[in-house]
């Protein structure tokens, strides 16, 4: 187990290094000039700016500085928001995104497992058909449309009540999080419902369920203790990709709901070509996602020893 964890962590580190390098090369391949502005800059000012940002050094040296800074956890200073360090931006805004993402993931997981179990229970009957229809609908509609619809629903609801019960946009209280996290979790929830359904049906055909039934156990006991518990296992494997989907989905939801999360800052930085912020947040997000996937895999290894053996053996 320890060698498996070490192996995964090492490959994760290599991936993060690759992400950092690709980000560095990518940003330096961008046509144009980070210091080019609508204001005319004299050569002296330009030279001092380049020196300040370290842009006067040759590329390999810049790369070494970049990597060593990053190893020390320093992502540099924003180009467009003067005097604001990228570290500060990440520290201020990532918790907001993480909070939103965590709530969305919880909603998605609980909802997906519940709906999936219900569809399997009512296989080919009305609840199953209805829920699967909704699932197909949910995976076919882009997240920003859901975000817009969610906002519209909140607005109409508030109008119906007569005063603002749930805020339409913004951040601060738990009420602010409700709609965005629901919208953010919806796509993942649909995906998990589908997975849970097939997993439940697969488990229903196994010998141990038949044995349990033959022993005369009560139907609820078989359903919860034997079928549901075993069917949840595969859901854990897709939590890694689900976290990735929710993180990137957050870009759009934060934009639409005006939430001061890191995703919105990333999109803003991308639109303003704020080089250091793009590089910093890309590497940060990349590392976060890579290690989340690894963490999920390791947890799964603990939960289901069969997987661990398979992976090391291969």
């Amino acid at each position: 187990m320890i060698s498996y964890i070490a192996k995964r962590l090492l490959s994760g580190l290599v991936t993060v290094w690759f992400i950092a390098t690709a980000t560095f090369l990518g940003m330096h391949a961008v046509p144009g000039d980070p210091l080019l502005n609508d204001k005319a800059v004299t050569p002296e000012v330009r030279a001092s700016l380049e020196a300040a940002y370290g842009l006067d050094k040759p590329l390999p040296q810049q790369y070494v500085i970049y990597l060593s800074n990053m190893l020390q956890g320093d992502f540099g200073i924003s180009f467009t928001q003067k005097n604001r360090r990228v570290n500060d931006i990440i520290r201020d805004h990532f918790p907001v995104s993480a909070m939103l993402g965590l709530l969305a993931l919880t909603i998605a997981a609980l909802g997906g497992i519940t709906w999936g179990a219900i569809t399997a229970l009512y296989r080919d009957r009305l609840p199953d058909v209805l829920i699967m229809l909704l699932v197909v609908f949910a995976v076919s509609v882009p997240s920003f449309v859901f975000a817009a619809l969610g906002q519209l629903v909140v607005l109409k609801f508030n109008q119906l009540i007569g005063h603002s019960v749930i805020p339409v946009a913004g951040w601060g209280t738990f009420k602010h999080m409700l709609m965005p996290s629901l919208v953010l979790g919806l796509g993942t929830m649909a995906y998990l419902t589908r997975l849970m359904r097939s997993s439940m049906l697969e488990v229903a055909d196994t010998d141990y369920i038949r044995t349990a039934r033959a022993k005369g156990l009560s139907a609820p006991r078989i359903f919860f203790k034997h079928q549901l518990r075993n069917a949840i296992l595969p859901v854990i494997t897709v939590l890694g990709p689900a976290i990735a989907a929710i993180t990137t989905g957050g870009f759009v939801v934060e934009l639409v709901f005006a939430i001061p999360g890191l995703g919105r800052y990333f999109v803003q930085a991308v639109q303003q070509l704020d080089y250091t912020v793009i590089m910093g947040t890309t590497v940060f997000y990349g590392a976060f996602l890579v290690f989340m996937v690894i963490a999920v895999d390791i947890i799964y290894g603990f939960v289901d020893p069969r997987i661990r053996v398979d992976k090391v053996g291969a």
């Binding site: 991936t15 690759f18 992400i19 690709a22 980000t23 990518g26 940003m27 961008v30 990735a244 990137t248 870009f251 991308v270 070509l273 793009i278 890309t282 997000y285 990349g286 996602l289 890579v290």
Partner: peptide
């Protein structure tokens, strides 16, 4: 590699 992040990066 995180897909959408790199899509954005490549696009830039």
């Amino acid at each position: 590699l995180p897909f959408l992040l790199f899509m954005i990066l490549f696009k830039i």
